[in-house]
Design a protein around this nucleic acid. Structure first.
Lengths: 109, 109
DNA sequence: TTTATTTATCGTAATATTGCAATATAATAT
DNA sequence: ATATTATATTGCAATATTACGATAAATAAA
């Protein structure tokens, strides 16, 4: 127990869940918004920007990197993170599929 | 520690995170898809449909209900669940805001 | 080489999530 | 009233998440 039974769900359901879980934290939402806002990618100023410890930010970045939403390239001493367009697109498409399935009231409750 | 520091994030960031967290599980995605697919709302056939124990399904339903994504009305012995249009709309809008902020490559990494 | 800077990793404490059996609750039917 | 059916709640074990201090690793500057 305590372990999600992924084997009983479809690949898409599991994939979407994994991507959404990576987004489902205010710090990671803030990190992504900051990466998007500061066109020039992002380095370690996230630690100042948000009020979390460096280790915590690094951990959140790794989670986003693990599911592929962002990617990082070493740039001298620091690391530059940015959106991975491909995965970002997959996420958007899967979300669209999900939301488009719903068409207004089913008129029941 | 072990507790998300919501106080350092905006209301919107926290709200979106809470909604996404409710979605971020394959069982809850499957439940929503089933509710959407079977127009006539849904009752307890989710237990048969997905392969999870009744207590587990009930728990997932409660989580979705807690954040307002679905609502349930008693219908005789059973309960009929359906999408809460208002919250569904809020979620879609907040997601749109989030994704629309990103416009193509930032051209950095 | 030594030092500073930046990021990653490890270890750990506190808390949350997942899943289920057992049981409780609520509504209908007999 | 009693039985039946459907859903909710409780309690628990296994695992995951969140946050952070301490420390390691990697690069650049002196």
């Amino acid at each position: 127990m305590g372990l999600t039974r992924t084997e009983i769900f479809t690949l898409e359901q599991n994939q979407l869940a994994v991507l959404l879980k990576a987004l489902a934290h205010p710090a990671r939402i803030a990190i992504l918004q900051h990466i998007i806002a500061t066109k020039s990618c992002v380095c370690g100023d996230l630690v100042e920007e948000l009020g979390l410890a460096q280790a915590t930010i690094s951990q959140h970045l790794r989670e986003l990197k693990n599911v592929g939403i962002i990617q990082g390239t070493i740039e001298g001493v620091s690391v530059c993170y940015c959106i991975n367009e491909e995965v970002w697109g997959v996420l958007q498409e899967q979300l669209n599929n999900f939301f488009n399935a719903y068409r207004g009231t089913s008129g029941c409750c």
